[in-house]
Write a protein that binds this DNA or RNA. Sequence first.
DNA 1: ATGTCC
Length: 473
Amino acid sequence: MENKRINGNDLLALGYKENRALGIALKINSKRHGLKRDEMLQKFKEVLADPESFSEDAIFEPLAKALLFPEEKDTNIIPLKESTDAYAVYGEEHIEEGARKQMDVAMRLPVSVAGALMPDAHQGYGLPIGGVLATENAIIPYAVGVDIGCRMALSIFDMEDVALLEKHDWLKKIILQNTRFGAGNGFLKHERLDHEVLENPLFQEIPFISNLKDKAWTQLGSSGGGNHFVEFGSINFEQEDQELGIPAGKYLALLTHSGSRGLGATIAGHYTKLAKELCKLPYQAQHLAYLGMDTEAGQEYWNAMNLAGDYASACHEVIHEKVLKDLGVDRMAKIENHHNFAWKEQYKGKELMVHRKGATPAAEGVLGIIPGSMASDGFLVRGKGVESSINSASHGAGRQMSRTQAIKNLKKQDMLQMLNDQGVTLIGSNMDEAPMAYKDIHTVMAAQEDLVDIVANFSPKIVRMADDGSRED
DNA sequence: ATGTCC
C-alpha cells in the first residue's frame, strides 16, 4: 500500500478541487521527479497551502499558477455546449453513474450530434466503454480507444461439437501451438508469416509507423492480454440459418477476441497527443480532443486508424487460417465484427462519424458476435438497425467489478468450480477475468432485445487467455 | 489495451 500511486482521490482528500489544477497536479505526479509518495503528497499539500512560494519552482510552478489564477482562461479553449439532446440508454439500471457522466460530457462537444449507451457500458477514458458517439466532420482518437479495431472473429466448422469432448486434447494442442499471448509478446522470427497488410503504404509514408513495422510483423497473429482470448466452443443453431447456409445443429467453432496490439496502441497514443495539442477542451472533456476530418491531422489519423483495423483483422485471419489448416475440415462460415473504431455512416440523412468504443455495429441484417464470459454463453446476433442506438449493440456482458476489485474479492476456488460446472478447460488467465467479474450476459441481452436478434448461442469449452504471471513488475 | 510518457 505504501507504494500505491497517488490518484485524484488522494488530491481531493488534501483539499484539491475537480478542476484544471487537479489535472496539472496529476500530470506532475506521473513524472515522479524522484520524489517518494509521501514526499510528493507533502509537496502537494504545501503548494495548495501557499502557491505563491512555488510560483518559480522548477517542478510545481504550473500547479502554483493554476491555483493562483484559477479563473484565468486559455482563450484557445473551445467551450462545450450548455445543453444537448437526450441520448438513448439501454439497460440503464445496470449502468454506473460514472459512465453516464462521461457520456453527458461527450454529448456537449461542439461536434457531437447524437449518442447512445449500450447495456454493458462502464467508465472508461474519455468516452465510456459501451458508448456510441456520432460527430460531424470530426474524429476523436479517445472515442475510438487505445486498442483500435479490436474485434471478434468466429469460424464455424463442418464438425459436430462432440469433438470438444472426444478430441479435447488435440483441440487444446491446436490452440496452444497456434496462439501467442501476453503484452509485448509475438512470434519468433522464423515463425513469422507474411501478410498484405504489411504492404500498406503508411509503413513507408509516416516515420513513426514505419518504425513499428517490424514489431507489427512479429506480433501478427498474436492475441495480447487483458480480456483477449482464443477459444473453441460449441455453437448451437436452434434452427437453420438460410443466409449463412447452416442447418440446425451444434458445431465446433473458434471464437477469437483481440485487437491491433502494439501497432494500434502506438497509433492511438500518437494521435491522442496530437489531438490534445490541436484541440484544447475544458478540463472535464480534455480526453475527447478531436481532429477535423478536413484537416491533415484528421485525415492522417483516419488512414492510420484504418491501418490498425486492417492489422487487427489480419491477426485474427492468421489465427483462424492456422487452426483451420490443423483441423483439416471445411469451414461453413466466418463472421467478424469490430468495435473501438469510427465509421462514416448516414444518420438522419447526414453523413456523420460514428464512434463505437466497445459497441457492436448492429445495422439491419448485420451479423455480430457478443461474447459472455469464459463460463457463459456468447451470441451470434443479427442487427435490427434501431436509429436511437445509432445502429449499435453491446460488445459483451460488461464488467460489474473493476480488475482490482475482482482480484481482491473473488476466490479462485469459486472460479474453478464454475469452470468445472460448465465443462470449460482454461489455459492461462487470471482472477480479473473471472466470470463473476462480469455482468450476467442474459440480463444484458434482455436489455438490448430491441437492438439485435439472436441467431445462435456459443458456449466456450477450451479457453486460452494471457497468463498474468508474465507481468509481475 | 499497451512492454512502462518526450
